[in-house]
Write a protein that binds this DNA or RNA. Structure first.
Lengths: 155, 155
DNA sequence: GGATAACCGACCAATCGAGTAGGATTTAGA
DNA sequence: TCTAAATCCTACTCGATTGGTCGGTTATCC
């Protein structure tokens, strides 16, 4: 499995925030109910999203979370990276600030690591998919809550 | 991390087999030594490759492993899938025989799973990278053993 | 001053990754 | 026929990660 449920749940959380029409904060409990996910686990995930600056929080009664930017300015590579950490295909594979990649085996001595070519291509493919998809794409794909019952069902 | 060292080691093993000029089987201990990987762990990995029909084995003295097909007829999606199992970006994501994808949340009731679009794109990117790279590509990239000491160093 | 809700950290069970260990079986060659 | 070299197979360990739970603290609206 490439990603864990952290990414899955976190993305669904972001989509849920993105499909809210108003500008009022949404309580996490409403999201948990709508997506049928455990609230206390979502708390951990939303904390990562907040630290990454993707959502803002309002404390206290009638508080909650909202997107810190419009959904079409949020790309999924930010979201997934906030949730899962650095996206690298392989442990030995750390991108440097200059955009290059290092492979820890290269110092092994005699030759370039044979797998580097492969992982570079894989990472390119994943990156392209993630950065080429915005939260707005997913919100639109999910549909603007035209379904049977309202998501929050609150108030 | 998208993949574990199983894929890393397994691919390096395949490359090592692919760069052997002759048609004689290569002992796993020679590969382990050349790549500095634990022999007993490689045994597990090569077993998977054998079950997937990617390598053939010769038992007994002077036995070993060889590719079951020419390197340019082996694509990396076969190799990685043999080592890591089904390549799906997410647990809920199982491709059906017809090439479609199922998302277990879809039966949740009211709407399509919002994340499906994203994971479909990611999987597409990974698949394209893996199936577009052949073992021969990696063998060539690694270079035809022009380095200091011979790999096997045996006989 | 409640109720509501974000925040925070500790804890826990199950699974998986990475590797070890030990033996059984097959085969080439002396 | 015996032995060394190799594949093959199963079981085990040990640590890290996942997917949670729980209890408590702080902030804010009414």
């Amino acid at each position: 499995m490439l990603f864990s449920t952290k990414a899955e749940y976190g993305v669904r959380l972001m989509v849920e925030l993105g499909r809210q029409p108003g500008s009022e904060p949404v309580a996490l409990s409403a999201v948990a109910e709508a997506e049928r996910l455990p609230l206390s686990y979502l708390e951990h995930l939303v904390a990562k999203l907040r630290q990454a600056g993707l959502v803002t929080s309002t404390r206290g009664a009638h508080g909650g979370y909202q997107l810190s930017r419009p959904a079409d300015e949020i790309t999924m590579d930010e979201v997934v990276e906030a949730l899962e950490g650095q996206i690298a295909p392989m442990e030995c594979f750390h991108p440097t600030p200059e955009g290059k990649v290092l492979c820890s085996h290269e110092s092994d001595g005699d030759r370039a690591c044979a797998t580097k070519l492969l992982w570079t291509r894989v990472q390119g493919g994943v990156n392209k998919a993630l950065s080429g998809t915005s939260l707005a794409d997913l919100v639109e794909f999910a549909g603007p809550r035209e379904s049977k019952q309202s998501v929050g069902s609150a108030v």
